[in-house]
Design a protein around this nucleic acid. Structure first.
Lengths: 291, 291
DNA sequence: GCAGATAGTTGACTTAAGTCAGATAAAATA
DNA sequence: TATTTTATCTGACTTAAGTCAACTATCTGC
């Protein structure tokens, strides 16, 4: 194989140029690139200034000034965080939303051009981008609570179900309804639904619902293939166990299939032990853990 | 699947920041980034100023000034092109070469850090980078003559041989010697060896050697998986046919295997027809074409 | 040999980007 | 309550980057 480092450099060169080209499409709207990039990160519902600074990796002074310029343009409104008077929250004004839309469309057009060039390799291209971004962001994966009906949750669940379908245990698509019919059991105060985020891409999930008195069941542990091998499954399991403790459960159960050897090894290593069957069909192993 | 465009944006954001970080490692040597990048492109043997301008996409005035600053630092020497008095050639002085080395090592260290983070997914990461860079550069693939003993040629041949081994026709590694024992037959004036380059990565090859009076054989057509689906195989075949014509051959032959259906379809579409067997073993189809 | 094209240099300028210290106000901690 | 920490803002500044036009020295084709 040719020098991996030479290949990284080639990648850098190409992507720098290509992304530069993508970026310059944001010019022509009368404001510098950094302001345009910033505007795109502000959500209509409001975004923490600290969050923006983090994402763009900007100096406090610089960000403050950029926000000020967007403010005087009438695109952004700054409010003090009611929960913490030091923090400020940037929100889009109606004019700001309109401008945001325009940038969004410019971005779409450019992105489409990239994907069009990929032709039949579109899916491979997207997977490659996800892999690279996920590797580069791997220290910044965040696990947060989510609503089971949220689009991101549905994305995770549908990816999880795809895996079940591929395993060929006789499961058919109609046995896996989305959204979940018993979603309420996965919401506080009954249960929980956790998503692992890499930037704004959901790359893993796990959920919890009440099973019997004092006992909850962990279900639907999923980790995106691009994010495997970094201990994310373990982090998700520990997070859901901690949620179960918070809710007041004293024990957990789960069912699985011995085809998923890696998952079962993880459960065992984390203090789970085999227990009596309590479900049927695709499951052929059942485990429990005291909290 | 989540919006492909949102994923491209995430990729852009992450890679911009990450590559920015890679770049800043070139700072700390007392000169601006653009000067550092420029220095790295100057070869010890000399590089055309126009070529530099092209690669970095810089304004003539800006490049001129950057070169001047490197010159007064004593890192670069500018000479007039003996073949064209308007052109100038930049070459590294001994001090410039030393500085170049330092930048090279800085780049290596940073790149290694990226790969280390990838852990077990290093190969996947490299493949993903190659795919993205190749897609983005697909309009700029260049086919050039190469020496069969050149490291790039050996890279292509070994990738080609890997495919043969995987096909499981009873071929063993010792039947595929590298470098080629009959390399001279693939050099002018007897034959040819062509490589398709994407930037500085070889992504395809094809070769030609004399078979019988007036007839040459096309061998070892290979296209890197990351570059498939863009008609590169056809471009390579047409290029090698044109080389054969230049040398003076009046006909071509090749052998193949019906397992390679796509390749055979390509040959047929390009005017090749089946002919009598002239080799044995892994081959089970033989084709010929008049020039 | 001459007009026009080409390659590069230089000066004058604008704009974007990044840095840093000091100020303010709210929150967290002792 | 006093002190320290945190989040942001502001002003003054430096540096890098990009633009434009005028100029010189060659080369190319008629």
């Amino acid at each position: 194989m040719l020098d991996a480092i030479a290949r990284l450099r080639r990648f850098n060169r190409v992507v720098t140029r290509e992304i530069g080209a993508l970026d310059t499409s944001y010019l022509g709207r009368g404001r510098p690139l950094s302001a345009a990039r910033l505007l795109q990160l502000v959500k209509a519902t409001g975004t923490d200034v600290a969050d923006l600074r983090n994402r763009l990796d900007l100096d406090t002074g610089q960000l403050s000034r950029l926000l000020r310029s967007l403010e005087t343009e009438g695109l952004v409104r700054l409010e003090t965080d009611p929960a913490d008077g030091r923090r400020r929250i940037a929100m889009l004004t109606p004019e700001g939303q309109a401008e945001w839309q325009i940038y969004d469309q410019l971005g779409h057009a450019k992105a489409r051009a990239v994907f069009d060039r990929a032709g039949s390799r579109q899916h491979a291209l997207i997977a490659a981008m996800d892999l690279i971004a996920t590797v580069m962001l791997q220290d910044q994966v965040e696990i947060r609570d989510a609503d089971p009906d949220d689009p991101a949750s549905l994305h995770c669940l549908s990816a999880y179900f795809q895996i079940l379908l591929k395993m060929n245990h006789g499961i058919t698509p109609d046995m896996l309804p989305l959204p979940l019919p018993d979603a309420d059991n996965y919401r506080p105060p009954h249960g929980a639904f956790l998503i692992a985020w890499s930037d704004d891409l959901p790359i893993g999930c796990v959920s919890l619902h009440p099973l019997e008195s004092g006992i909850a069941e962990v279900k639907r542990l999923w980790v995106d293939p691009v994010a495997r091998g970094q201990g994310l499954a373990r982090r998700l399991m520990r997070a859901i166990e901690s949620r179960a403790r918070d809710i007041g459960f004293t024990g957990l159960k789960l069912d699985s299939n011995t085809d998923l050897a890696a998952a079962i090894a993880l459960y065992r290593a984390d203090g789970w032990a085999e227990t009596a069957p309590y479900t049927s069909f695709p499951a052929n192993i059942w485990m429990a853990k005291r909290l």
